[in-house]
């Protein structure tokens, strides 16, 4: 992906831009901290099987004798209703949330990018049609469409990802279409058209590679929202299935033990909060850094 980005003829100024971006990032403390947290979360997700003290508790192992124990040196975050270590499960949940969110976003990119590129490049009736369809999808209040689709597909983490992708792609279609329209007027596209390159080739060789970077930025900003949506679906019983240590599912289950075991709901909640917050702060910061309108300030 990255090599593609830099292989274009616009490499020179891009490199300069990138350096400037790094400088801006360094100056914005909140963004820098959030970037560090995000990187840490990714690290935790990768090495979770090795750092979780009770890796078996994240899968099918149960230990009901030790149920609902408060936090202690043996179980840092206490145990759940089947005696499983909540710390291990929260750690492992990082992997699940990041993974699902990533897949959901990639799925929506796969739908959204080509549609947007086609709409923007070809224009006319096809553009009109695609944009009306995105309008329709965007007129569902947030979450509602995902709820309905998850209900149809049946509750599972996989189906939750599909449901989110189906309700999320129109945002990328809109973004890419805008990019495509402006790219269409650029010299190198005009040149390609002039030598008779087919429209397909223009879309996939010239348009899509050149609008990918703002899309990636947008997608990374969306990660927080997607993670929150997944946990909401799981909370409603439309996402992850037991015994998967998904945060939203853990909170949903913990409701029943709310008065006896405060630790059960509080830690997964904090995990969601920190993760979503870090991604949102990073996204906000990135947008400012990369947005030509605000960057000169």
């Amino acid at each position: 992906m990255l090599t593609k980005l830099f292989s274009s003829k616009l490499m020179e100024p891009k490199l300069k831009e990138a350096k400037f971006s790094l400088f801006l990032l360094n100056r914005n403390k909140l963004t820098k901290i959030s970037l560090i947290i995000v990187l840490l979360l990714i690290l935790i997700a990768v090495i979770s099987p090795w750092i979780a003290p009770y890796p078996g508790h994240t899968d099918l192992e149960v230990n009901p004798q030790d149920k609902l124990l408060p936090p202690s040196s043996q179980y840092f975050f206490g145990t759940d209703e089947l005696g499983r270590d909540i710390f291990s499960r929260v750690i492992f949940g990082t992997r699940i949330s990041l993974n699902t969110a990533l897949v959901a976003v990639i799925l929506s990119l796969i739908i959204g990018i080509p549609l947007g590129a086609v709409a923007g490049t070809i224009g006319g009736k096809i553009d009109e049609l695609i944009m009306r369809i995105t309008d329709i999808f965007l007129s569902f209040p947030p979450l509602l469409l995902a709820i309905a689709i998850a209900a149809v597909l049946g509750p599972s983490l996989q189906n939750a990802m599909i449901a989110i992708a189906i309700s999320w792609w129109p945002w990328y279609t809109r973004l890419v279409r805008g990019q495509a329209i402006s790219l269409k007027e650029r010299q190198f596209v005009k040149a390609a058209e002039a030598i008779g390159t087919s429209q397909n080739k223009i879309i996939f060789k010239h348009i899509i590679p050149n609008c990918i970077s703002p899309v990636i930025v947008q997608a990374s900003m969306d990660m927080g929202g997607v993670i929150l949506t997944i946990s909401s679906l799981s909370f409603l019983g439309l996402g992850a299935q037991a015994p998967t240590p998904e945060w939203g599912l853990m909170i949903s289950t913990s409701r029943n033990f709310f008065l006896n075991a405060w630790w059960y709901s509080i830690f997964p909640g904090i995990a969601i909060f920190i993760t979503v917050l870090a991604f949102n702060l990073l996204g906000d910061g990135l947008r400012e850094i990369l947005d030509p309108k605000t960057r000169k300030n």
Binding site: L60, E61, V62, P64, E81, L82, A242, P243, T253, N256
Partner: peptide, 12 residues
């Protein structure tokens, strides 16, 4: 929740 707990115990 009861059916869910039972299912997890049986799975193990």
């Amino acid at each position: 929740e009861e059916e869910k707990k039972t299912a997890q115990l049986y799975k193990a």
